[in-house]
Protein backbone atom coordinates (compact mmCIF):
# COMPACT_ATOMS: atom_id res chain seq x y z
CA UNK A 1 0.00 0.00 0.00
CA UNK A 2 2.94 2.28 0.66
CA UNK A 3 4.21 2.23 -2.91
CA UNK A 4 0.79 3.11 -4.29
CA UNK A 5 0.55 6.05 -1.93
CA UNK A 6 3.89 7.36 -3.13
CA UNK A 7 3.09 7.08 -6.82
CA UNK A 8 -0.21 8.89 -6.43
CA UNK A 9 1.45 11.60 -4.41
CA UNK A 10 4.15 12.05 -6.99
CA UNK A 11 1.51 12.33 -9.67
CA UNK A 12 -0.34 15.04 -7.74
CA UNK A 13 2.90 16.86 -7.06
CA UNK A 14 3.79 16.82 -10.74
CA UNK A 15 0.37 18.12 -11.70
CA UNK A 16 0.55 20.95 -9.21
CA UNK A 17 4.10 21.72 -10.24
CA UNK A 18 3.15 22.07 -13.87
CA UNK A 19 0.06 24.06 -13.01
CA UNK A 20 2.06 26.56 -11.02
CA UNK A 21 5.26 26.58 -13.08
CA UNK A 22 4.38 29.53 -15.31
CA UNK A 23 3.13 31.44 -12.29
CA UNK A 24 6.34 30.97 -10.39
CA UNK A 25 8.20 31.93 -13.54
CA UNK A 26 6.28 35.19 -13.61
CA UNK A 27 6.86 35.83 -9.92
CA UNK A 28 10.56 35.06 -10.25
CA UNK A 29 11.06 37.61 -12.99
CA UNK A 30 9.01 40.25 -11.24
CA UNK A 31 12.13 40.86 -9.21
CA UNK A 32 14.40 41.12 -12.22
CA UNK A 33 16.25 44.38 -12.60
CA UNK A 34 17.01 43.39 -16.18
CA UNK A 35 13.55 44.43 -17.29
CA UNK A 36 12.77 41.37 -19.35
CA UNK A 37 11.63 37.82 -18.70
CA UNK A 38 14.99 36.26 -19.36
CA UNK A 39 18.53 36.74 -18.10
CA UNK A 40 17.92 37.51 -14.52
CA UNK A 41 20.24 40.28 -13.49
CA UNK A 42 19.74 41.74 -10.05
CA UNK A 43 17.07 41.53 -7.44
CA UNK A 44 14.96 44.64 -7.28
CA UNK A 45 11.67 45.89 -5.93
CA UNK A 46 11.48 48.70 -8.50
CA UNK A 47 8.65 47.12 -10.42
CA UNK A 48 6.54 46.89 -7.30
CA UNK A 49 7.15 50.55 -6.64
CA UNK A 50 6.06 51.33 -10.18
CA UNK A 51 2.87 49.37 -9.76
CA UNK A 52 1.91 51.42 -6.76
CA UNK A 53 2.68 54.67 -8.56
CA UNK A 54 1.01 53.94 -11.88
CA UNK A 55 -2.34 55.69 -11.66
CA UNK A 56 -3.64 54.39 -14.96
CA UNK A 57 -2.86 50.80 -13.96
CA UNK A 58 -4.56 51.38 -10.66
CA UNK A 59 -7.69 52.63 -12.43
CA UNK A 60 -7.69 49.55 -14.59
CA UNK A 61 -7.31 47.19 -11.64
CA UNK A 62 -10.15 48.97 -9.88
CA UNK A 63 -12.26 48.73 -13.03
CA UNK A 64 -11.63 45.01 -13.12
CA UNK A 65 -12.57 44.59 -9.48
CA UNK A 66 -15.74 46.66 -9.76
CA UNK A 67 -16.91 44.80 -12.82
CA UNK A 68 -16.20 41.49 -11.11
CA UNK A 69 -18.01 42.43 -7.90
CA UNK A 70 -21.04 44.02 -9.52
CA UNK A 71 -21.45 41.44 -12.22
CA UNK A 72 -21.06 38.60 -9.74
CA UNK A 73 -23.60 40.17 -7.38
CA UNK A 74 -26.22 40.93 -10.01
CA UNK A 75 -25.77 37.67 -11.84
CA UNK A 76 -26.09 35.81 -8.54
CA UNK A 77 -29.44 37.48 -7.92
CA UNK A 78 -30.68 36.69 -11.41
CA UNK A 79 -29.21 33.20 -11.17
CA UNK A 80 -31.00 32.46 -7.91
CA UNK A 81 -34.24 33.58 -9.50
CA UNK A 82 -33.47 31.36 -12.43
CA UNK A 83 -32.76 28.35 -10.25
CA UNK A 84 -36.00 28.92 -8.35
CA UNK A 85 -37.82 29.28 -11.64
CA UNK A 86 -36.42 26.08 -13.10
CA UNK A 87 -37.02 24.24 -9.85
CA UNK A 88 -40.64 25.23 -9.78
CA UNK A 89 -41.41 24.18 -13.34
CA UNK A 90 -43.28 20.92 -13.34
CA UNK A 91 -43.24 19.86 -16.97
CA UNK A 92 -40.07 18.02 -17.82
CA UNK A 93 -39.91 19.36 -21.38
CA UNK A 94 -39.96 22.98 -20.31
CA UNK A 95 -37.47 22.21 -17.59
CA UNK A 96 -35.03 20.67 -20.02
CA UNK A 97 -35.39 23.43 -22.57
CA UNK A 98 -34.70 26.03 -19.93
CA UNK A 99 -31.69 24.08 -18.74
CA UNK A 100 -30.30 23.73 -22.26
CA UNK A 101 -30.79 27.40 -22.96
CA UNK A 102 -29.11 28.10 -19.67
CA UNK A 103 -26.09 26.10 -20.63
CA UNK A 104 -25.65 27.59 -24.07
CA UNK A 105 -23.54 30.43 -22.80
CA UNK A 106 -21.44 28.16 -20.63
CA UNK A 107 -20.51 26.03 -23.53
CA UNK A 108 -20.17 28.72 -26.16
CA UNK A 109 -16.69 29.80 -27.08
CA UNK A 110 -15.84 33.27 -25.82
CA UNK A 111 -15.38 34.47 -29.34
CA UNK A 112 -18.99 33.81 -30.27
CA UNK A 113 -20.30 35.33 -27.07
CA UNK A 114 -18.16 38.39 -27.58
CA UNK A 115 -19.06 38.73 -31.22
CA UNK A 116 -22.79 38.24 -30.70
CA UNK A 117 -22.91 40.67 -27.79
CA UNK A 118 -21.02 43.18 -29.89
CA UNK A 119 -23.65 42.89 -32.58
CA UNK A 120 -26.41 43.13 -29.98
CA UNK A 121 -25.01 46.25 -28.35
CA UNK A 122 -24.33 47.92 -31.65
CA UNK A 123 -27.86 47.36 -32.83
CA UNK A 124 -29.48 48.45 -29.59
CA UNK A 125 -27.17 51.41 -29.52
CA UNK A 126 -25.49 50.82 -26.19
CA UNK A 127 -22.19 52.59 -26.07
CA UNK A 128 -19.23 50.32 -25.71
CA UNK A 129 -17.58 50.80 -22.39
CA UNK A 130 -18.36 50.17 -18.76
CA UNK A 131 -22.03 49.38 -19.30
CA UNK A 132 -21.49 46.97 -22.16
CA UNK A 133 -18.76 45.14 -20.27
CA UNK A 134 -20.86 44.95 -17.11
CA UNK A 135 -23.89 43.62 -18.98
CA UNK A 136 -21.78 41.03 -20.77
CA UNK A 137 -20.17 39.80 -17.58
CA UNK A 138 -23.53 39.53 -15.88
CA UNK A 139 -24.82 37.64 -18.90
CA UNK A 140 -22.20 34.96 -18.98
CA UNK A 141 -22.10 34.51 -15.21
CA UNK A 142 -25.79 33.80 -14.72
CA UNK A 143 -25.65 30.20 -16.00
CA UNK A 144 -22.96 29.11 -13.59
CA UNK A 145 -24.87 30.57 -10.66
CA UNK A 146 -27.93 28.59 -11.73
CA UNK A 147 -25.79 25.47 -11.89
CA UNK A 148 -24.45 26.03 -8.43
CA UNK A 149 -27.80 26.78 -6.83
CA UNK A 150 -30.10 24.33 -8.57
CA UNK A 151 -28.55 21.15 -7.13
CA UNK A 152 -29.02 22.54 -3.66
CA UNK A 153 -32.67 23.19 -4.40
CA UNK A 154 -33.07 19.69 -5.70
CA UNK A 155 -31.44 18.26 -2.62
CA UNK A 156 -33.76 20.16 -0.38
CA UNK A 157 -36.48 18.02 0.99
CA UNK A 158 -39.91 19.40 0.02
CA UNK A 159 -41.16 18.40 3.45
CA UNK A 160 -39.23 21.35 4.83
CA UNK A 161 -41.49 23.68 2.93
CA UNK A 162 -44.55 21.76 3.94
CA UNK A 163 -43.50 21.90 7.57
CA UNK A 164 -42.98 25.62 7.37
CA UNK A 165 -46.39 26.11 5.81
CA UNK A 166 -48.00 23.99 8.47
CA UNK A 167 -46.46 26.22 11.05
CA UNK A 168 -48.14 29.15 9.36
CA UNK A 169 -45.31 30.69 7.42
CA UNK A 170 -46.24 33.14 4.67
CA UNK A 171 -45.00 32.76 1.12
CA UNK A 172 -42.33 35.33 1.73
CA UNK A 173 -41.20 33.67 4.94
CA UNK A 174 -41.00 30.29 3.30
CA UNK A 175 -38.59 31.66 0.80
CA UNK A 176 -36.51 33.88 2.99
CA UNK A 177 -36.48 31.78 6.13
CA UNK A 178 -36.43 28.26 4.75
CA UNK A 179 -35.35 28.00 1.16
CA UNK A 180 -32.65 30.62 0.96
CA UNK A 181 -30.84 29.64 4.13
CA UNK A 182 -30.78 26.09 2.87
CA UNK A 183 -29.28 26.98 -0.46
CA UNK A 184 -26.90 29.60 0.89
CA UNK A 185 -23.77 27.51 0.28
CA UNK A 186 -24.87 27.21 -3.34
CA UNK A 187 -25.38 30.94 -3.55
CA UNK A 188 -21.93 31.61 -2.20
CA UNK A 189 -20.43 29.06 -4.55
CA UNK A 190 -22.26 30.69 -7.44
CA UNK A 191 -21.06 34.12 -6.47
CA UNK A 192 -17.53 32.86 -6.19
CA UNK A 193 -17.58 31.18 -9.59
CA UNK A 194 -19.14 34.26 -11.17
CA UNK A 195 -16.34 36.32 -9.68
CA UNK A 196 -13.81 33.91 -11.17
CA UNK A 197 -15.39 34.01 -14.60
CA UNK A 198 -15.39 37.76 -14.62
CA UNK A 199 -11.81 38.19 -13.44
CA UNK A 200 -10.57 35.58 -15.85
CA UNK A 201 -12.35 36.83 -18.90
CA UNK A 202 -10.47 38.27 -21.81
CA UNK A 203 -12.17 37.48 -25.10
CA UNK A 204 -15.66 38.76 -24.33
CA UNK A 205 -14.39 41.96 -22.71
CA UNK A 206 -12.05 42.47 -25.62
CA UNK A 207 -14.93 42.44 -28.08
CA UNK A 208 -17.32 44.67 -26.18
CA UNK A 209 -15.10 47.25 -24.57
CA UNK A 210 -14.54 50.72 -25.84
CA UNK A 211 -14.22 54.35 -24.94
CA UNK A 212 -10.97 53.81 -23.15
CA UNK A 213 -12.51 51.49 -20.59
CA UNK A 214 -10.16 48.64 -19.95
CA UNK A 215 -9.89 45.69 -17.64
CA UNK A 216 -6.66 44.07 -16.59
CA UNK A 217 -6.76 41.26 -19.13
CA UNK A 218 -7.46 43.59 -22.03
CA UNK A 219 -4.81 46.01 -20.81
CA UNK A 220 -2.18 43.30 -20.63
CA UNK A 221 -3.08 42.32 -24.15
CA UNK A 222 -2.52 45.83 -25.43
CA UNK A 223 0.63 46.23 -23.35
CA UNK A 224 2.06 43.27 -25.18
CA UNK A 225 2.55 45.59 -28.15
CA UNK A 226 5.41 47.34 -26.46
CA UNK A 227 6.76 44.33 -24.74
CA UNK A 228 5.40 43.30 -21.39
CA UNK A 229 6.81 45.49 -18.73
CA UNK A 230 7.69 43.71 -15.52
CA UNK A 231 5.26 45.96 -13.66
CA UNK A 232 2.65 43.51 -14.84
CA UNK A 233 4.63 40.66 -13.32
CA UNK A 234 4.78 42.58 -10.07
CA UNK A 235 1.06 43.32 -10.23
CA UNK A 236 0.26 39.68 -10.94
CA UNK A 237 2.38 38.56 -8.02
CA UNK A 238 0.48 40.90 -5.74
CA UNK A 239 -2.86 39.69 -7.10
CA UNK A 240 -1.74 36.11 -6.73
CA UNK A 241 -0.74 36.59 -3.10
CA UNK A 242 -4.02 38.34 -2.41
CA UNK A 243 -6.04 35.56 -3.99
CA UNK A 244 -4.17 32.88 -2.09
CA UNK A 245 -5.08 34.68 1.10
CA UNK A 246 -8.69 34.98 -0.03
CA UNK A 247 -8.84 31.35 -1.03
CA UNK A 248 -7.50 30.11 2.27
CA UNK A 249 -9.80 32.52 4.06
CA UNK A 250 -12.82 31.36 2.07
CA UNK A 251 -11.96 27.76 2.75
CA UNK A 252 -12.01 28.22 6.46
CA UNK A 253 -15.24 30.18 6.25
CA UNK A 254 -16.98 27.39 4.38
CA UNK A 255 -15.68 24.94 6.97
CA UNK A 256 -17.96 26.69 9.39
CA UNK A 257 -21.07 25.40 7.65
CA UNK A 258 -22.42 21.98 8.62
CA UNK A 259 -21.88 20.58 5.24
CA UNK A 260 -18.77 21.93 3.60
CA UNK A 261 -19.73 24.16 0.70
CA UNK A 262 -19.62 21.98 -2.31
CA UNK A 263 -17.82 23.64 -5.11
CA UNK A 264 -19.59 21.99 -7.94
CA UNK A 265 -18.50 22.09 -11.49
CA UNK A 266 -20.76 22.27 -14.46
CA UNK A 267 -23.36 19.59 -14.92
Amino acid sequence: MNRKWKVSNIYLIIVFFILYAPIFYLIYYSFNSGGKMHHFENFTLDWYKEVLQNVRLLIIVLNTIVIALLSAAISTIIGVFGALAIYSVKTRRVKNTLLSLNNVLLVSPDVIIGASFLILFTIVGIQLGFISVLLSHIAFSVPIVVLMVLPKLQEMSPTLIDAARDLGASQWNVITKVVIPYITPGIFAGFFMALTYSLDDFAVTFFVTGNGFSTLSVEIYSMARQGISLTINALSTLIFLLTILLVIGYYFITLRYNRPGRLGGRK
Binding site: D200, S217, I220, A224, S236, I239, F240
Partner: peptide
Protein backbone atom coordinates in the same frame (compact mmCIF):
# COMPACT_ATOMS: atom_id res chain seq x y z
CA UNK B 1 -4.09 29.56 -11.46
CA UNK B 2 -7.18 30.32 -13.50
CA UNK B 3 -7.22 33.72 -11.84
CA UNK B 4 -3.86 34.70 -13.27
CA UNK B 5 -4.21 36.33 -16.62
CA UNK B 6 -4.07 33.96 -19.56
CA UNK B 7 -1.85 36.15 -21.68
CA UNK B 8 0.74 36.33 -18.94
Amino acid sequence: PMWINLLL
